[in-house]
């Protein structure tokens, strides 16, 4: 055989209420072992409360060459941010 174990991407929720965050990758023959390896490799210092493992091959990524069309159109929609609007000081917090 000698087929290399597939690669998995590891996501860890650091604390309750936070998003899972990509922390790295590792090799494992299947999801269950990937999960255990993730626990052993990436939570040695008490870093997590929940783990996701995803086969690296299952991730669809945006293409770097699309970076312009993909992300630039949102740059000029400044009205989506609260700081766009002037609120008089006397109104207080809004």
């Amino acid at each position: 055989m000698s087929a290399e174990w597939p690669l998995w991407e590891i996501f860890i929720r650091g604390q309750h209420g936070l998003n899972h965050r990509h922390v790295g990758s590792l090799h494992a023959p299947d999801a269950e072992l990937a999960m255990r390896h993730a626990r052993d490799v990436y939570t040695r210092r008490n870093e997590g409360v929940s783990i996701w493992v995803v086969p690296s091959a299952a991730i669809s990524a945006s293409s770097p060459s699309d970076k312009g069309p993909m992300f630039e159109p949102s740059q000029d929609k400044v009205y989506r941010h609260p700081s766009f609007f002037d609120i008089p000081d006397e109104i207080g917090h809004m």
């Binding site: 174990w5 590792l26 090799h27 494992a28 255990r36 390896h37 052993d40 490799v41 040695r44």
Partner: peptide
Amino acid sequence: PVLEEDIALAN
């Protein structure tokens, strides 16, 4: 046999 197991055994 593999790095992941090396780390697990140490744990």
